[in-house]
Computed example of a mutant assay.
Amino acid sequence: MRRIPRLLATAAAALTAASLAPAPAAADPAPAELPDRVLAGYLHASFANGSGWVDLADVPDEWDIIHLAFAEPTSPTSGRLEFEPCPAEECPGAPSEQEFTAQIEQAQQRGKKVVLSVGGQNGQVSLETPAARDAFADSAAEIIDRYGLDGIDIDFEGHSLYLDEGDTDFRAPTTPVITNLIGALHDLTGRYGEDFVLTMAPETFFVQVGHQFYGSGQWGGADPRAGAYLPVIHALRDRLTLLHVQHYNSGPVLGLDGRHHTMGSADFHQAMADMVLSGFPVEGDESRFFPPLEPGQVAIGLPASPQAGNGHTPVAEVQSAWDCLTTGSGCSGYTPEQPHPGLRGLMAWSINWDRYNGDEFATEHGRHLG
């Protein structure tokens, strides 16, 4: 038998081993990057209301971030979240869980970020203990993994967040419901890494009102919820994808110009957005200055239609505010000291109400923002 030289034999063996070895698994495609301008909208995923069911597959392409509303806790203080797609008997036309999961994947393949929104008007979440903190993070991760979601949205309203007496510095909070939420969000963002989407949708009372009042106030007796989101935003600012304060369901708010502004008009959006883009002294104290967020972290939250909530603003007024904030031109009622051309986009409550209204929000604002 003819002997094969050692080098040739080694090469032959290597080729044989290579041919028998399983092919390397294809790497998962990198998550799509969010565009420079975004529209974020809430999709009624776990409940029905008068706007009607909208399949993820039918969400117009203008929406870049789709918030699934809502995950809610088993009790206000348990921290443990539950989320199930709305059953067909409550939401006619709703898909099965398997179909819903497939629709999420298809939306992501179209470049959308699909995010779990927690709370809402009825979902009170008070993380009073470390056990509740851990249950929140663990159960949120279970839902995110179960449906293959891209991140989490914190939409705490009502009495979920407040500041204890003596908790006066947003840079070093001591109230358990604040510190435990911060801890849970640090946990979640740490688990999933830099591609994890973290958004927040506080009401103006929890953010901009902090310019005038913070917690119970220096003399006590004020509403302890005033400005209560500020320590959460500040602690997570390096991990925050988008803050879209709800510029609706709001009373008049004191702006940086020393004037009160009322929702539903361009000057309200200009004044409220400029506060988080420029920063402001908390409770008027310059030694407690809330630093500005990056423009790319900020969007304006709006009702998508007159039926969606108080403070609906006509398309022309919204676009006037957008142009004022991004270019410094066409301002009325409030003028920022400097334009913020990197302002990220708009948020709407909700995609369902926009569909009900003929997709005006997505179509008109999608076109204007480019």
Rank of each mutant, 00 (worst) to 15 (best):
I4K: 05
A12L: 15
L15Q: 10
T16R: 12
A17K: 10
A17E: 08
A25N: 07
D28T: 12
V38E: 03
G41V: 03
H44C: 08
W53Q: 07
V59A: 08
P60L: 09
A71H: 02
S75Q: 09
F83E: 02
E84S: 15
E84D: 14
C86I: 09
A88S: 15
E89H: 13
A94V: 06
Q98N: 12
K112P: 01
N122V: 06
R146T: 11
I154M: 08
D155S: 09
F156N: 01
G158K: 11
Y162E: 04
L163W: 01
V177Q: 08
N180Q: 14
I182Q: 03
Y192A: 06
G193M: 15
A201M: 06
P202S: 09
E203R: 12
Q208K: 03
H211G: 08
G215H: 04
S216C: 10
A222K: 15
G227E: 00
H234V: 04
R237N: 03
Q246P: 06
Y248M: 15
G255S: 06
H269Q: 14
M272R: 05
G279D: 01
E286G: 11
P291E: 03
Q297L: 00
S305Y: 06
A308Y: 05
N310K: 12
C324F: 04
T326K: 00
C331W: 00
Y334D: 02
T335E: 01
T335N: 00
P339R: 00
R355I: 09
R355H: 14
Y356P: 04
D359A: 09
E360K: 12
F361E: 00
E364Q: 15
G370A: 11
